[in-house]
Computed example of a mutant assay.
Amino acid sequence: MQRRRFNQWLGGLSASALAVPALQAQAQARPLLKAGDQKGGLQALLEAAGELKGLAYDIQWTEFPAAAPLAEALNAQAVDLGPIGDAPLIFTLAAGSRVKAFAVNRSDAYGTAVLVAPNSPLKSAKDLKGKSVATNRGSIGHFVTLKALASVGLKAEDVQLRFLPPADAKLALTQGSVDAWATWEPYTALAETGGHARVLVSGRGLWSGLSYLAATDTALRDKRSVLQDFAQRAARAQQWARQHPTEFGGTLARIIGIPVEAAKLQFERRQTRWQAIDAEVIAEQQRTADFYLDAGLIKQRLDVRATFDTGFSAPA
C-alpha cells in the first residue's frame, strides 16, 4: 500500500515538474521586438496615441541621440529595427550593414537645417565659406550641409566640418566654438524656441524628407508579422497625432522631456505622412546615394533597389 502511494506521489511530482518548463516555455513564446529609437521619435508617438496597448509581442526600447549610433546598433544586431533618415541609411549600408528599409514616411524638410547663433553675421549658405560647421558624420544634417554648399557653388573643403553628437554640437554653437550647427528635429525646434539659434538654411529644396523604418535581415526573416504590425501602429499613431496636435504636443513634451512649445513646433511643421515604397521613393534614394558618392562619403556606387524590402503592406 505504501509503495503504491509513493508511486502515485512520484507520478504527480513528475507531472508537476514537467508542467513548470511547459509554462515557462509558454510565457517565453511571446515575441520580443528590440526597437531602436531617436529622441522625440516612435516610442513617444506610439505611447501618446495609445498604440502600445494590446500588443501580441513585447518591445524592448533603446533610445539613441542620432542615426549613427542607431545604425551601429542595427549592424551589431543589438536592435531589430529603428527609424533612420535616407542619408544615414545609405551611409551605413555602404559600410556593409545588413539591414533593409521596409516602411517609409515623408516629412517637410524645413527642420533639418543649418543653424547659427541668433546674433551671427551669417545670412546665407554663401557665408559658410571658411566657417566651421558641427554635425554628425553621415547624418541628414551632414547631407543638408553638403547640399547647401553645393547649391551656392561651394564644396565640403570650403568649410571646416566638425563631427559632434547633437548635445556637444549645440554646446559648441552656444559657446561660439563653431559657426554653425547642422541638425534635425526636435533639436532645431529646441534651439529656436530656447533662443539659442536661428535657421540659416532650411532643408526645403535640399533634402527629400524621406525617413525609413529599417530592420536587420534576421528580423525581416524571423519577425515579419511583428514588424508589419509595428509599422501599421506607427502610421495610425501619426494620423491620431495630426488630429490631436495640442494633446500630442503636451504628451510628447512630457515623455521626451522638452518644452511644450518646442514639441508642438517640431511636430506641426514636420507634417509626416507614411506612404508606399514606390518607384519615386527608390529613385530619390538613388539620387541621394549618388550624391554621397560624388561627395566622396561612400566609395562605390550603391544600387539602392537591393536595400528595400517591398514585401510589406504600406502603412495605412
Rank of each mutant, 00 (worst) to 15 (best):
F291I: 11
R242G: 05
I282W: 02
V260N: 13
G203R: 00
Q24V: 15
Q271A: 13
A279Y: 03
H196K: 13
Q239W: 02
A125I: 10
T62L: 06
A276D: 10
E51P: 13
K126F: 15
A295L: 11
D222V: 05
I298G: 07
K123N: 08
R98Y: 00
R198I: 13
Q2C: 01
G205P: 13
D127G: 07
D158L: 09
R98E: 10
V20E: 08
D86A: 10
T183V: 15
A214S: 14
D294M: 15
L33A: 11
Q77N: 15
A237Y: 11
R4M: 03
P88V: 03
A182Q: 03
Q243I: 06
A231D: 11
I84L: 08
L23W: 14
F163D: 09
L210A: 04
G82R: 03
P69I: 13
G250I: 03
L10R: 12
Q266R: 10
D86S: 08
V116P: 00
G12K: 01
E247W: 01
S225P: 05
A125K: 12
S202H: 14
L70I: 12
A214K: 01
Q228T: 15
A71T: 10
A235H: 05
D229V: 07
G194A: 03
D278K: 07
L89A: 03
A215T: 04
G141T: 06
G249Q: 08
A197N: 04
V199L: 09
R162D: 02
D222T: 14
T188E: 04
R270D: 03
A78P: 01
G82A: 11
G205K: 11
T62K: 12
R137N: 12
L115R: 02
Q232V: 04
R254W: 00
A29G: 00
A148Y: 05
S14G: 04
R221H: 10
T112D: 01
Q266L: 08
L146D: 08
A101Q: 02
